[in-house]
Design a protein around this nucleic acid. Structure first.
Lengths: 243, 243
DNA sequence: CGTCGGGTTGATAACTTTCAAATTTCGTGG
DNA sequence: CCACGAAATTTGAAAGTTATCAACCCGACG
């Protein structure tokens, strides 16, 4: 496997310049891959087992269900992302993780990760960077929901996903494939699916983005960035910091 | 200093049972205390310097400013909390941190923390636990803003703060002192200050909580918990896991 | 061919914001 | 200890945003 088809390596490469050895270790972590079908929880709230996964292909979402019957999607994970890394330390998982599409993921035992870190210490820094970045994304998500209206919110969300996908080689400033339904967008953005639909239409009519049939097309990338106040700085991926 | 007046020790004590030696190390970390006045940023967005603090007394908030002139408060920090722990790893801080009241905080250099960890490895687990818990709180905050209406949102927020303060010995199920203004509540909860005011009145009239003159009084704690769907599980503080 | 999950649209209702203004609280200096 | 001004709280009315309800359309699929 080369760096090009190892999304985790691509992503971490945005933070540390990886050596051949380090790359090889990352490839090993991808060893025990399993396939999971959409809809069935990988990890559910209250679960005791403490394991994490690295996503190799497909999309996943992590969410919480509320007693009032609604749900809030906290984040989507794309290839190269960790699943449940945080919950390794907690007594129980505090949220659910469910595949959106059919996925391939490798289970990572805490021990394997620690071994990798002692062999290649710079990987530890890189993984911590990834965890910090995940948290920064949750924070930005919070800001998005708390202080932007529906149209800006959707724009910002679509741009963030685009930037993340581009980093792992799955998209460009022209657009990307996206398996999310309008219901999922709604649950992620704190809106109703119906309103999501309307707002997507507006964005399309404004000539900014087209979100249709599983594909996002940027009709006016710069315009959308300006409209959404999208500042990708929080993604902290301007190229390797540690060489 | 005994565990009782070291809020960090009290908090970590909810996760690991601390030995005398470990307690002593935590007391040392509180060594270099400084006083900071309210309103002046401790850490501001884009700042390069990578240092963290432990809060000894007073309240702090971390927030992001948006180009549209609004702000979103991501979280409040109370005694025993870390400030800017996450941003130590990032190139630049991605948010601002500002004292709400006059505070006392100790600067913690990455090195000191690492030294402490090698002397008392269980502290490392405890600090990571604290970091995971912080992230869990941000996630719950996201859920709160995304899927609860203003009244539940405020209720939930007030309860979470209460639980956190109780953990460090600054409150009880009867109530707690709270220096936050209605404007701050609004910026934290994605509401307008005016609406916050109305909703606080409703909660008071419902006989659930009274938020007034810097003090929160629970008029009906259980009733409020039920109304807000407050499940403190995500705070993961049911008593020491590691002994 | 009928069903089902998504997507789309219109009408109405609910919740929240914004604007304007009055009232209270609080810190500070006299 | 009181007066004063700034900050915080409170209230009303009008406007705006988003949710809810009710249909209808469409392509995939068994």
């Amino acid at each position: 496997m080369s760096a090009l088809d190892n999304p985790l390596a691509r992503k971490l490469g945005a933070f540390v310049a990886l050596s051949g050895d380090e790359m090889a270790i990352l490839d090993q972590l991808y060893g025990r891959r399993k396939i999971f079908a959409p809809g069935r929880d990988l990890i559910h709230e209250g679960q005791i087992k403490r394991s994490a996964y690295i996503l190799a292909s497909g999309w996943v979402c992590s969410y919480k269900l509320l007693p009032n019957g609604t749900r809030q999607i906290v984040d989507f994970q794309i290839p190269g992302d960790f699943l449940g890394l945080r919950s390794v330390l907690f007594r129980t998982s505090d949220h659910n993780i469910e595949p959106v599409t059919s996925i391939e993921a490798s289970e990572v035992l805490a021990k394997d990760l620690l071994d990798a870190f002692s062999t290649a210490p710079r990987l530890a820094a890189a993984v911590l960077w990834a965890a910090s970045r995940d948290e920064a994304m949750v924070v930005e998500h919070l800001v998005n929901i708390g202080r932007r209206d529906a149209k800006q919110r959707l724009s910002h969300f679509i741009l963030e996903l685009g930037a993340r996908l581009k980093l792992v080689g799955l998209g460009s400033n022209a657009g990307y494939d996206c398996p999310l339904t309008q219901y999922m967008l709604a649950d992620a953005l704190g809106l109703s699916a119906i309103h999501v639909n309307r707002v997507l239409r507006e964005l399309r009519e404004d000539g900014l983005v087209t979100f249709r049939q599983g594909a996002v097309t940027f009709d006016n990338y710069e315009g959308l960035v300006a409209y959404a106040d999208f500042d990708r700085h929080y993604l902290d991926d301007d190229g390797p910091l540690m060489r």
